[in-house]
Design a protein around this nucleic acid. Sequence first.
DNA 1: CCGGAAGTTCCATGATATGGAACCCCTGTT
DNA 2: AACAGGGGTTCCATATCATGGAACTTCCGG
Lengths: 255, 255
Amino acid sequence: MDKSAQAITGTQAVNRANALLVHILEAERSPILTELAIAHGLAKSTTSRLLGALERSGLVQRDREGAFQPGSVLTKFARTRGGEADLAARFRPVLQRISNSTGETANLAIAGHGAVDLIDQVDGHYLLGAKNWVGTNVPLHCSALGKVLLAFGAATMPKGRLARRTSATITSKIQLEDELTRVKSKGFASIYDELEEGLVAIAVPVREIDGTVIGAISLSGPSTRITRERIDKLGALLIAEIEAEKPIRKKEGAA
Amino acid sequence: MDKSAQAITGTQAVNRANALLVHILEAERSPILTELAIAHGLAKSTTSRLLGALERSGLVQRDREGAFQPGSVLTKFARTRGGEADLAARFRPVLQRISNSTGETANLAIAGHGAVDLIDQVDGHYLLGAKNWVGTNVPLHCSALGKVLLAFGAATMPKGRLARRTSATITSKIQLEDELTRVKSKGFASIYDELEEGLVAIAVPVREIDGTVIGAISLSGPSTRITRERIDKLGALLIAEIEAEKPIRKKEGAA
DNA sequence: CCGGAAGTTCCATGATATGGAACCCCTGTT
DNA sequence: AACAGGGGTTCCATATCATGGAACTTCCGG
């Protein structure tokens, strides 16, 4: 098969092996050899050899039926460095800085099962507002974190009705979509009384190097301190803090 | 003929690329190209090409200094399928079956930071004993789960003294080593009054396909119900239940 | 402005991956 | 029991593809 794109040469075998590996990593069901061979247009013999190599390095393994799944090297990596704990560790300093410079509570969250999953928190120095949310589940549609996760595609629109938590809660999906569009264009989300009377929160996305949004960081406090006029400035502050943390940038190469 | 060590031909490039990938996954610090080239005895040009291929498939990426780290495909895998949540989902049915057939509480745990990390629980149908342990940290040396994790190398021997929780707690490391040897030979661990007076627990290892122990599953209840004579039988039951949890494959219509 | 270290691209060369065919399982069918 | 058939591995001649030295580019630090 000839590729119209400038087929980078000198790595055919590696490219194929990588494609197989990615396939196995992303597949719902563990694929078997023949399946992979057909999907990638490879000879069975070639596929067998490549998979054998991947298996020898521990990148893939076979279940007892011979189907391929991620190997021990990868599952170990996932358990020890890829997971939530790692994310929390990486963004602890950001939460800390946000909390320090504003005095309010900062949270880190990821998309949970139809809800926001709080995984870390740094309390502010005020007494009011110091509830610990970690471990609790917050609705997607009426939290700043949830709006960010929804707006940037890290969470999917909840099924069913949107629960009314206060008179300010957005309960119409149309309106919510509008709100998400605003969130996307501004780069941050906020809630004002929408989750609880008197509670204000502002959240910004946490991105992977490739730009994928994988979580969100929020700042929250009482509306007596966080007035509507401050929201934009605080949103900008959050964005700046996250930018500052990003130690990594994708190399700009040819498309 | 025996070609055990290497000598498997036809995959040189793939082997090298895999080795680089594994290196990057397991390295503490993100290695740079030259480092990798030297470590693997490869020409810079070759290394550059191989890493380029890995990068193109999203298996590795570079930070702003050009050092290599796991790519988005892998971090995404780690977040969505490699972590605790996945483990809990996979073994939920086992806990359920154990709980159903015995009426007692079943738990799933992994090795935490110097302690046992409870990540899932299914309560039994008795009223006595239904405390929810999820999220709490239990000592390694005086829990059945901890003994399993220690015995099978999923956790490392705690530093410092072994806290005495009851008069039955093993507080000598020598005695604990003996106990771990027994655990390994029997295939399961148990505690009787060692963590709390009247509390009995039995635990078995949860294994990766390659045999690595990554967690443990336990059954626990009061000594009034779980008598010493029943322990061996319950241990065997737990082992059988885990064994039964083999991978299942279903076919689906192609395309 | 220079020296040096890190990284990428180029290219002739032959070592190395390729895929068809043969072969070896299993499992279900007659 | 013999057979058909699907899945997987091994073998091997072939030429494609990976290889590494050298040349070239940045990017620092002095």
